[in-house]
Design a binder for these strands. Structure first.
Length: 531
RNA sequence: GGUGCUAUCGUCUAGGGGUCUAGGACAACGGCCUCUCACGCCGUAAACCCGGGUUCGAAUCCCGGUAGCACUACCA
């Protein structure tokens, strides 16, 4: 088997093998375990996955935990579970056993690897060691407006460029903390080819000498780790959020400094997910404020004690979330909106990804869930429905014949967006009304209603054929005979059975309730409803 | 402030010089259906940021402006 993780070996191979290998699509999703996975991150993962599948490539999961101070326990497990729930399969890396040939896939476990490359850059003179403390940097920023650590200022700072080698060695030997900075050569136009945006050019002078490595925790920063890992893991396409676009030129410079420009991955920067109202990036606060989840799964943050709601717990189907997210920033060539994962893999294309940010349209998300709900049978929905019923009513639901319950679900699912909304619509099938909706009563329960309902009671009591057809014939005949108003009678009847003027066709209700219960509710209604 | 990205109905978007009196979907509104509430169906309203070019012709190409967003950390 080919070892993708030994680029030097790859370089030695005959060209024809290299061509074959270079065609292998390998993408990665590389989240940071700093909390629940944001919905925008989920979309990034989804696009990566779809792209990988479409090209018969590999989808890797790498954990970017190079900031030891921001680590949140449980975040990694959360990410794995969320991706699994959504049907985003990982081929290599974290969450896969065995993880794969390019491991470890957790950056905090790759220290030795980074050491090697940090030294390589230092030896080549592409990076240097800096001792400036955070306080000193802070002071400099105050002193000089728009201070930037770069070619114009680095010679005024405490670093290996301004000190003798002896002093540098002495400071390190004394245990002084330092960072390694990338030495950006000024005044050079850096071109980044982006699959979504085309050519982006920026001048290297606006880039600062980015910190690549910090001795304090013996870890590289994102920029360094990202380039080294993508290279070693033979990543062919980097598909990530637009917030990375400004640092993409820096990444190109890093590939160049390492001498890896020939095998540099292709870049595709995805538009951001924006707040539904106002402006700005979608945040957890927006979800809390507007009442919708911003995370796939519920998350209990052990670090700050917060609980974040999730799509799964809110009653969303994973296929609805996938479909919804896929269309936020991407559109097929026609008017088609319902896409299964397989269809997305079939039709997806990076050049149909929008360039502009997309405001998060939560209402559309609900609609998608509604569509997927209609596609499922009462049978399929049964377990989820029972689980969504409040504990005190579960016995009543479980007592009922499953076939009847699934029939009720089939009957009522079309009027809700989520399974958890179902109970509110169907509870009267299981529990007799104890109170009667005031508005319905006011509108539909008239002076003559008690007498009519009493007569209806007697009529039904004497009817044995309880089929919908027969009841309809008998009751409608009786109404016609007495010249009652159909609406008046039927609505009053409905109120006694449901407790309000709502619900499915009345014979569907009597059918489920049966004669005995129907009569019981009718009688209770006559006694308790007062206009 | 600097740099970059972006710009079509309220929202997601189709559109890539003439087929655009700009299409679809969500939401809104109206109607139909009907014993009710929904669902569904039908319909209405609703947009090319502004200004210059290029061209016989621009939503589409170019330039400028404006606006929004992102980045500008020893965070990713």
């Amino acid at each position: 088997m080919t070892n993708f993780c030994k680029p030097d070996v790859v370089a030695e191979m005959p060209q024809k093998f290299r061509d074959i290998m270079e065609r292998k699509v390998r993408v990665r999703f590389a989240p940071s375990p700093t909390g629940a996975l944001h919905i925008g991150g989920v979309r990034t993962a989804l696009y990566n996955y779809i792209f990988a599948r479409q090209h018969g490539g590999d989808m890797l999961l790498r954990i970017e935990d190079t900031d030891s101070t921001r680590f949140v326990p449980g975040a990694e497990e959360y990410i794995i579970e969320a991706l699994r729930w959504l049907g985003i399969e990982i081929d290599e890396g974290i969450g896969v056993t065995p993880e794969g040939p390019c491991g470890p896939y957790r950056q905090s476990e790759r220290r030795e690897i980074y050491h090697q490359y940090v030294h390589q850059l230092l030896d080549k003179g592409k990076a240097y060691i800096a001792f400036d403390t955070p306080e000193e940097l802070e002071a400099k920023r105050k002193e000089i407006p728009n201070f930037q650590y770069d070619a114009s200022t680095r010679m005024q700072m405490h670093n290996s460029l301004t000190m003798s080698q002896e002093e540098v060695s002495a400071r390190i030997a004394a245990g002084e903390q330092y960072v390694v900075r990338f030495k950006v050569e000024p005044n050079e136009d850096v071109h980044v080819h982006d699959l979504i945006r085309g050519e982006v050019v920026i001048n290297s002078s606006i880039l600062d000498d980015k910190v690549l490595y910090k001795s304090a925790d013996d870890l590289p920063t994102y920029h360094m780790a990202n380039i080294v890992d993508d290279h070693l893991m033979q990543i062919s396409h980097v598909i990530r959020g637009e917030e990375w676009l400004p640092s993409a030129p820096l990444h190109v410079l890093l590939y160049r400094a390492f001498g890896w420009e020939d095998t540099m991955p292709e870049f595709a920067h995805l538009p951001l997910l924006l707040k539904p109202d106002g402006n700005g990036k979608l945040s957890k606060r927006d979800g809390d404020r507007l009442g919708f989840p911003v995370f796939p799964l519920e998350f209990h943050n052990q670090k700050d004690g917060t609980v974040s709601s999730g799509y799964r717990e809110s009653g969303y189907f994973p296929e609805a979330v996938v479909n919804f997210l896929a269309l936020l920033g991407w559109h097929g060539s026609g008017d088609k909106e319902m896409y299964t994962m397989d269809e997305l893999i079939q039709d997806f294309s990076l050049d149909r990804v929008s360039k502009a940010g997309a405001k998060f349209d939560y209402e559309k998300g609900k609609w998608f869930n509604h569509q997927y709900l209609q596609l499922k049978s009462g049978e399929e929905l049964y377990d989820a429905f029972v689980a969504s019923v409040p504990a005190e009513y579960q016995p009543a639901v479980k007592k009922m014949d499953k076939a009847v319950v699934t029939h009720i679900i089939d009957l009522m699912k079309e009027r809700v967006n989520f399974v958890p909304e179902l109970w509110e619509q169907v509870n009267f099938f299981f529990v007799a009304p104890t109170e009667y909706d005031e508005k319905s009563v006011k509108k539909r329960w008239k002076e003559e209603s008690p007498a009519q309902m009493q007569a209806l009671y007697e009529l039904l009591e004497g009817t044995d054929d309880w089929s919908a057809e027969n009841l309809d014939q008998v009751v409608m005949g009786w109404i016609a005979e007495h010249e009652y108003g159909v609406g008046l009678v039927m609505n009053a009847f409905r109120i006694t059975l449901v407790g309000a003027a709502r619900g499915p066709h009345i014979w569907e209700i009597t059918n489920v309730l049966g004669k005995e219960e129907t009569l019981r509710r009718l009688k209770a209604g006559i006694e308790h409803i007062h206009a």
